[in-house]
Nucleic acid binder design. Sequence first.
DNA 1: CTAGACTGATCCGGTCCCGAAACGGATCGG
DNA 2: CCGATCCGTTTCGGGACCGGATCAGTCTAG
Lengths: 116, 116
Amino acid sequence: MTVELKPVQALALWQNVVLETVRRDGPDLSSRQLAILLTVYLTPPPHTVRGLASSLKVSKPAITRALDTLGQLDLLKRKRDDADRRNVLVQRTVKGSVFLRDFGDLVVDTAGRLDA
Amino acid sequence: MTVELKPVQALALWQNVVLETVRRDGPDLSSRQLAILLTVYLTPPPHTVRGLASSLKVSKPAITRALDTLGQLDLLKRKRDDADRRNVLVQRTVKGSVFLRDFGDLVVDTAGRLDA
DNA sequence: CTAGACTGATCCGGTCCCGAAACGGATCGG
DNA sequence: CCGATCCGTTTCGGGACCGGATCAGTCTAG
C-alpha cells in the first residue's frame, strides 16, 4: 500500500480514522491512553511507570490511572518486577494485540480509500 | 511524499504523532474535539450543532460543550444563521487554519521520517 | 395570530481525570 | 542494622465532561 501523503491528505486520513473511532462504541481512549498503549507495544521493553511518565512528560499518577483503565479493558497488564520489587513492568495482552492490529488495519484501509 | 504504509508503520506513525501532541503543552484536545475540528475544516459547509451531533453519533450537549472549548481556544467560531436564526453555523478561524496546517505538516514529517 | 415543531443552550446529577502531596513498601549505602 | 532514597499508589480538592431533560428563542402551517 503506497500513499502519496500531502498535508491535506494527512488531515483527511486523520479525520476519517478519528471519526470512525468516535462513532464506534468501542473503548473510548484518550490521547494519553493511546500513546501509552502504542508505546508499550511498539517500543522495546521493559516499560515502567516512571519511564512512561518521563517519555510522555506526564505525572506518575496520570500513568497509574491510565494503566488502571487500560488494565480494566484488558489491553495491558501489570507485572511486579521480581528482580526489583519496587518496579512494575507493563506488559502486553492478547486483547491489546488484537486491538492494535485492528487499529493498524483501519488506518491502512482508510489511507487506501483516500488514494482513489 | 510517498509512503509505503503497512499496518506496523501506520501504528508507528500514529504513535509518534500522538506522542508528540501529548508532549507538547499545546491545546489538549479530546478525540471528539479533534473530530469536530477536522470535520468543520475538511467537509463542505454549512455545519450545524445537530448536523455534527448526527455525524459523530454524539449528543447535542456534547457538541455544544466542544464548541465552547474550541471557541475559547479560538480554533472555531459560532455564527447565527441569518436566514434561520434557530441555526448556529460553525465556522473556521485563522488560528484554527494555522493549527490544522501545522498538524498536517507534523503528520507528513513524521511519515517521512518513518520511511528512512 | 397562534399552536406546534424545531434549534441550540442550559441545568442537573454523576463520573472521570488532573497534578501536588503524602504514603507504605522495597532497596541500597554506610 | 538503619537512615536515605527510590518506586508505584493513594488521597485530595478542583475542573471537565457525560447524556437526559428542559428551556428560551425562532419559524411555520393553518
